[in-house]
Design a protein around this nucleic acid. Sequence first.
DNA 1: GTGAAAGCGCTAACAT
DNA 2: ATGTTAGCGCTTTCAC
Lengths: 337, 337
Amino acid sequence: MVTIYDIAKRANVSHMTVSRVLNSPHLVSEKTREKILKTAKEMGYKPNLIARSMRTKKTNYIGLILPDIINPFFPEIVRGASDSASKLGYNIILVNTDNDYAKEQASLEMLFNRGVDGVIHCGIAGGKKDKAFIEEINENKLPCILIDRYIPDLDTPYVISNNFELAYEATEYLIKLGHKNIGVISSPLKIKIHKDRLMGYKQALEDNNLVFDESLVVEGEENIESGAELAKQLLADPKKKISAIFTMCDFLAFGVYKYCKANKIPIPDGLSIISIDDIYASSLLEPPLTTMAQKKYEMGFNAAKILIDAINNKKMPQKKMILKAKLVKRESCKKID
Amino acid sequence: MVTIYDIAKRANVSHMTVSRVLNSPHLVSEKTREKILKTAKEMGYKPNLIARSMRTKKTNYIGLILPDIINPFFPEIVRGASDSASKLGYNIILVNTDNDYAKEQASLEMLFNRGVDGVIHCGIAGGKKDKAFIEEINENKLPCILIDRYIPDLDTPYVISNNFELAYEATEYLIKLGHKNIGVISSPLKIKIHKDRLMGYKQALEDNNLVFDESLVVEGEENIESGAELAKQLLADPKKKISAIFTMCDFLAFGVYKYCKANKIPIPDGLSIISIDDIYASSLLEPPLTTMAQKKYEMGFNAAKILIDAINNKKMPQKKMILKAKLVKRESCKKID
DNA sequence: GTGAAAGCGCTAACAT
DNA sequence: ATGTTAGCGCTTTCAC
């Protein structure tokens, strides 16, 4: 392995001059600078980033903690964060936690020991332990930013969607199509952003002179089975006269599709569906799903950017960013009389 | 930050004894070992992995190079590799290259400089530059393993599917259903595994006394648009009497679905479709897609395992592993007379 | 079973 | 504009 000492020897300078050429070239005369650059190239020099980290106490690594990269919601976020980071000279260490607190703990410890410069936490579980987790990060003075969700009591910075407004827009879209009895299949309401969405739904009803009916709202886990089960629950009672369903994530909508197919309810003729997320599969469904597309790539991109800016200014990140979701009109919603 | 010197001082031993407790505890007497462990815990000691790497020339990092994590084929591979790695005390540095050679080069250089212990390369582009790329890795004596594809002339180890056999099985499945004129929408044939698959298709025809008709094979890029376009090409000529299509990846199958829907060709009544991959969306299509499921998670898992085994034995990886794809029968294929 | 010395490759701080 | 010295936190080597 070629070191700066090897280059220094060959170029008849001190190793410090070589180091300067690599880090602050303006401090070195053009002549020696070029000689050193040439020698370095000839010798196939590669800077040892580990040695550099050891001195500077900076690794240019960002830890990215998420539940499971296989969940189609996350790859775009990861790509966004990765692109943003590499543009700024950072790299991503990815860890999957399956929302398991023990795994989160272990990952965090690993990231500490590896000396990451900051952490992005994507999709915190929403339980009591989150707070302890974030507090532990803060105690260790590790810059941290959240994606997709936030913790109300703490002022950890975040990048999320405009949850209240996007739910308002989705609901209003259905109302404008003539729907009056709109069922909601909600993601867990212990998580703040889901509460925010429900508030948006309520507000849209109110602003359009429709009364909120609690019995039209059901809540479950964010998976297909839960969606199908809750659709059944909601549609079982014909007195509810539900003509449209608003699901809080695309997985839940997939479940509604499944239930409708099994029970010969045509979409959108028998039931309109609008959702939130816009993951890859949603446009491939039959009919293609109308959904509020979250800007997943941008979430990742901006989170990494905000975090790295903070790192470079040697302070904790402050900024909270809210990205506007976009209504993607496909074919799962229909005008009724 | 607490160092082994701090612990040594407090416990009245030398820093070396502390180091031994952490690395080869059996060399230290039980009494001192326990005292040191206790002190370390009290002081909140965390080993500095950077300093350790600096001395040992080992980072316990694996570079994972792939085209784009957003492509639904990759997340499972990444998860598999990540699980396998973390089980063995390694972590993954993920880089996206978009099949762009310049980006691959830059990533590789970064990984070198970061001192990764090995590299997993997932989905090499299949061009001439691959060879140069792999040779550069070899020159630098960096252990390397390929996933999903391989380079015929080089004996770099790999983990891939049984491409010949899986294509044989897919084709035979259609033949058994009564199909005699089976169109093929192929992925780029400059890539060896796709050639292998075509050979499997041919062999299945031959073994079932059907003649191979070159005009039934068309080739394109692995995306939906290409699939739709090639379906059009294949189905335009009624004289071909195509009753079934075998696509080499699920994206291509999605394109065929798109074309069929636009042209009112019912699946599977008007056309049977079988594919390869089994990405997440495939089960959600209407009708659900019958496809040869590649063991993506296992590919990643085993690749990381083989690589790390080799790293620990201080040699280059040797093993080539072939995983059996599994026929997932859904509803896109139909028996005909 | 334990300790002392050296050094991994680099940069910060100070000197010239 | 360039050089000297020291040291980041750890492990390797050798000595006792």
